[in-house]
Amino acid sequence: MKQLVQWLHRLEDSVLVLLLLAMIILAGYDILARSIFGGGVSWIPPLLRVMVLWIGLLGALLATRSREHISIDLISKLGGPVLNRIASTVTLLFAAVVCGLVGWYSGQYVQLAFEFQDIAFADIPAWPLQLIIPFTFGLMGLRFFIQGIAAATGKELTA
């Protein structure tokens, strides 16, 4: 189990790093193509925008791992350890439910996009590009859930 989790972490990290590198290279090439060769490569800009979505969601998944999401952290500053633990548990489980719901409905949506043969750009179907939404939200939900249980029981769990 622990190995599987480590393997998953490494996969997320590598995909993210490779996406960012690809983005820098493609964006750079597009500028060259436009300013020097006088034309553009029509599929690069829409691809770059999809990469922004992927990088954003994978980055968010990463932020979930280390609990670095943007939040107003009032109670943990003012409350004692007991209140703190309750607040952590409740908010983490809440986030888990929200992510789970978004993941579930996104999954349904992607299925619909597949059935309707929704096109993203050029001849590329939209559904494989949209698959990142249910994937990341599902995994974020799972991570928040495990963290919530950990906060409730006071144990260290990996996700």
């Binding site: 034309g39 029509s42 800009p45 829409p46």
Partner: peptide, 26 residues
């Protein structure tokens, strides 16, 4: 010239490409 075509406008793109113009889609 540096010709703009709307993004995803296949007709516009093909038109200019056939005229030897690499359009810029934005």
């Amino acid at each position: 010239q540096k010709v703009w075509v709307p993004e995803g406008d296949l007709i516009g793109e093909t038109t200019f490409e056939n005229g030897g113009v690499e359009p810029i889609s934005l």
